[in-house]
Design a protein around this nucleic acid. Structure first.
Length: 442
RNA sequence: GGCCCCAUCGUCUAUCGGCUAGGACACGAGCUUUUCAUGCUUGGUAGAGGAGUUCGACUCUCCUUGGGGCUGCCA
């Protein structure tokens, strides 16, 4: 039973993969993995202009990035054109299709092949997500299936390919519901079994309109570039219209596969919330194994400075452990690590103004140089006790803030004393002196 | 215009007739007495409107309103 289930993801490659589209892929994939069925990939590449090898490569790339592996060979729609036209001849012969001269919107006149819709009765199907759907046949017009230039149109190509790929469940976007009534008629005219359908609502923007590139990142590649983790995007997109039935939100891939049910997918459109995605990304960053996160940090550093300064493993591990809970996006890392791997970091003017250009800061910094240079054991706790002593039980802020800006150029970052420990004695003292001479007020 | 679909906090959602309507994100407050972040505690905000069915309706039915989709020689 279940091993006979076959679903497909059938995008037309355009060089970019829309998040709404990839969500359909995710649902198809999960449905197949949950039921033990097959997940097929069909490339609807009939638009020769846009379906370039590069565009197809982008598609494969996005799917691999998200861990959407497909079964069997990729099916290219253009390779099945002959079959599409054979089936059209079959429909012509059986009276289900006819040729007619038509004038298109742009004024071209030619002979197209039309599919003949039944003139009476009700076409109905039980949509797995939307429930029972019905429409009077008389409300649907005959529609074109072959262009005047002889090329097959989406409706016929799509149905024939689904028959040839023995697709049992069609899970696709909401925008295809109206087509479904038409397609069911084609399946019937061909004497082919009608697959089951599940139509997914769309992802909308804050105005409730379909989410487009004007609303922010609309394509998978953009999320990748911005430092999102594929697991986070996958998880977030899954939650946009489905939930496991309890309060769990961050799920492992195994849990998703185990719990996913198409019947539980929502009918209503879901608004895309970048804030929640960001939160989820942070959750996944925290889950990265420490060793992997260290590698990630090193990789980011190596694209920042060359050569990468030499430090032992424990130094890198310590830095990474300080960074990991603070990072929401992998792309946050470079700005946060710059001051640890290079003396050529920027000073934030606002932070300098607020923390260094205050009377007495120069003396304060020079005093700290004096005291820090006497610290025997250069460690975070030892350094902290120096400042604690200075503050005499009051807040450490007046010392902490200038030090932070003097050594890192920024007003925020990892814990100050951890920062100084990582920087080491020489660098810390040099930067404090330099800031005292060049930036601080008397 | 015609046809189809939808409607719980700002957002994603739980609830399959018994609800003091729960959780998460976001937001506010507090604590962790160095920033930022994490973590913990805590606060506010929801069932579009109107009929009906019922002992009882957010849950079922109908109407209204609002939103979306489709209405191509695009997919």
């Amino acid at each position: 039973m279940s091993e006979n289930i076959r679903v497909r993801f059938a995008p037309s490659p355009t060089g970019k993969v829309h998040i709404g589209n990839i969500r359909a892929a995710i649902y198809n994939w999960l449905f197949a993995r949950h039921t033990g069925g097959r997940f097929l990939l069909r490339v609807e590449d009939t638009d020769l202009e846009r379906s370039t090898p590069e565009a197809i490569a982008v598609l494969f790339d996005c799917m691999k990035w998200l861990g959407l592996d497909w079964d069997e060979e990729v099916f290219y729609q253009t390779k099945n054109v002959k079959r599409h036209l054979e089936v059209v001849d079959q429909l012509l012969a059986s009276g289900h299709a006819y040729k007619v001269e038509k004038t298109s919107r742009d004024g071209k006149t030619g002979v197209v092949t039309m599919f003949r819709m039944p003139k009476e009765g009700v076409i109905e199907f039980d949509d797995i997500v939307k429930g029972h759907m019905a429409k009077k046949a008389e409300d649907i017009q005959d529609f074109a299936i072959v262009r005047s230039d002889g090329s097959p149109i989406f409706h016929i190509a799509n149905v024939v390919d689904d028959i040839d790929q023995r697709v049992t469940h069609i899970i696709r976007g909401d925008d295809h519901v109206e087509n479904t009534f038409k397609h069911i008629c084609i399946f019937r005219a061909l004497g082919a079994p009608v697959p089951k359908y599940g139509h997914l609502s769309m992802i909308v923007n804050q105005q409730g309109k379909p989410y487009s590139k004007r609303d922010g990142a609309a394509f998978v590649g953009e999320y990748r570039e911005q430092g999102y983790l594929p697991e986070a995007l996958f998880n977030y997109l899954l939650l946009l219209g489905w939930n496991p039935g309890d309060d769990r939100e961050v799920l492992t891939r195994e849990e998703m596969v185990k719990l996913f049910e198409l019947e539980k997918v929502h009918v209503t459109a879901a608004m895309f919330d970048p804030k929640k995605l960001a939160w989820m990304n942070g959750e996944y960053i925290k889950k990265i194994p420490a060793a992997d996160f260290v590698s990630e940090v090193k990789a980011r550093v190596s694209s920042l400075v060359s050569p990468v300064p030499a430090h032992d493993d424990s130094w890198w591990q310590y830095l990474a452990s300080q960074l990991q809970p603070r990072v929401k996006f992998l792309n946050d890392i470079p700005a946060m690590v710059k001051c640890f791997v290079s003396d050529d970091f920027e000073f934030d003017p606002k932070a300098v103004e607020k923390r260094l250009r205050k009377p007495g800061v120069k003396a304060l910094l020079l005093d700290l140089v004096e005291r820090f240079s006497k610290v025997a054991d250069w460690s975070a706790p030892a350094l902290e006790s120096v400042v604690k002593e200075l503050s005499q039980g009051g807040g450490m802020g007046p010392w902490v803030h200038p030090i932070r800006v003097a050594v890192s150029g920024r007003g925020e970052g990892i814990g100050l004393f951890e920062m100084l420990q990582l920087l080491g004695r020489d660098t810390t003292l040099a930067r404090l002196r330099s800031a005292a001479e060049n930036l601080a007020s008397e």
